[in-house]
């Protein structure tokens, strides 16, 4: 009775399973912690969740302590082709000793821009300074960002070894980017854009993948006990016990016979 029911249920189930299998690729789920490893006194930190399915990336970033009401350029840095080990810079990367690790000083550690995390449109390195399409922190300095991006072929598998850098900080504490604080951005200038405050381009946070979870989370517990047992486990051991007792009995009888003979 129960068997029949099971079989009846199993058939459409199998069909569904095949369909589900066809859609295929499993997703990898990663976490990132983005912090001010540079010691740039940005006061900013973020967490990011990444879902990588083949070459499709869904990324969600939540941060706090950012320059309020200001755009924050953010990118994946590193390389999709090199096997080079990238890292986040610490304060020792401050080559000119001005108390800030600027973008140029950080690049040797975290590598070039490979993906611009814009809110819309192009995500190539060319959009690295597209401030009008970068997320803006709210009045309390909170920043949130969410987007699904199609990556260059083969890039999905590389992503977990790369770094995200969020730029823009408020060095003089007046809640905005201004030239008075750190002067003009030499990085922006080198790309042909004049008059951008260095506060707007200096790295505020940096981080890489720190954790991973199971891609698709199964529902509930796992059905690893089957229902066929009537309740007796370790049947073999009971069998052994029986055999051993029988042997003991046999040995006893054998011994008795000898003892009797002798008496």
């Amino acid at each position: 009775m129960r068997l029949t029911t099971k079989t009846a249920l199993a058939l459409p189930g199998t069909a569904l399973l095949l369909l589900a299998g066809a859609t295929g690729a499993s997703a990898d789920e990663f976490d990132m912690k983005l912090t001010d490893t540079m010691g740039n006194k940005s006061g900013s930190s973020s967490t990011a969740q990444l879902t990588v399915e083949g070459d499709s990336l869904s990324i969600k970033i939540t941060g706090q302590g950012f320059t309020p009401n200001s755009p924050h350029a953010q990118h994946f840095h590193g390389s999709f082709s090199d096997a080079k080990k990238f890292t986040c810079p610490d304060s020792s990367a401050d080559a000119d000793g001005d108390g800030q690790v600027n973008t140029e000083e950080g690049l040797p550690a975290y590598g070039d821009i490979v993906l611009s995390l814009t809110t819309s449109g192009d995500t190539s390195p060319e959009s690295g300074l597209a401030i009008d399409r970068m997320p803006t922190a709210d009045a309390a300095g909170n920043l949130s960002y969410e987007r699904t991006i199609e990556l260059p072929a083969g890039a999905g598998a590389k992503l977990k070894n790369l770094h995200v850098v969020q730029h823009g900080l408020d060095a003089n504490g007046n809640d905005k980017y201004d030239l008075e604080a750190l002067g003009e951005s030499s990085f922006a200038k080198s790309l042909g854009v004049d008059g951008i405050p260095e506060e707007a381009t200096n790295p505020a946070t940096c981080g890489t993948v720190t954790g991973a979870s199971t891609g698709e989370m199964p529902q509930g517990g796992v059905d690893t006990g089957d229902g066929t047992t009537g309740g007796t486990e370790a049947v073999g051991a009971f069998g052994l016990a029986g055999a051993a007792f029988a042997a003991a009995g046999g040995a006893l009888l054998y011994r008795r016979r000898f003892a009797t003979d002798r008496a």
Binding site: K33, T37, K41, G43, Q64, G65, P68, A140, T208, G211
Partner: peptide, 25 residues
């Protein structure tokens, strides 16, 4: 701890509390 829970940190204006560790697995 900057682990996940949003708002766990003092936000803007509390640089002394900000996490500056480079987190890796």
């Amino acid at each position: 701890s900057s682990s996940g829970s949003p708002g766990a940190h003092a936000g803007h204006g509390g640089p002394a509390l900000a996490d500056t560790e480079y987190h890796t697995p």
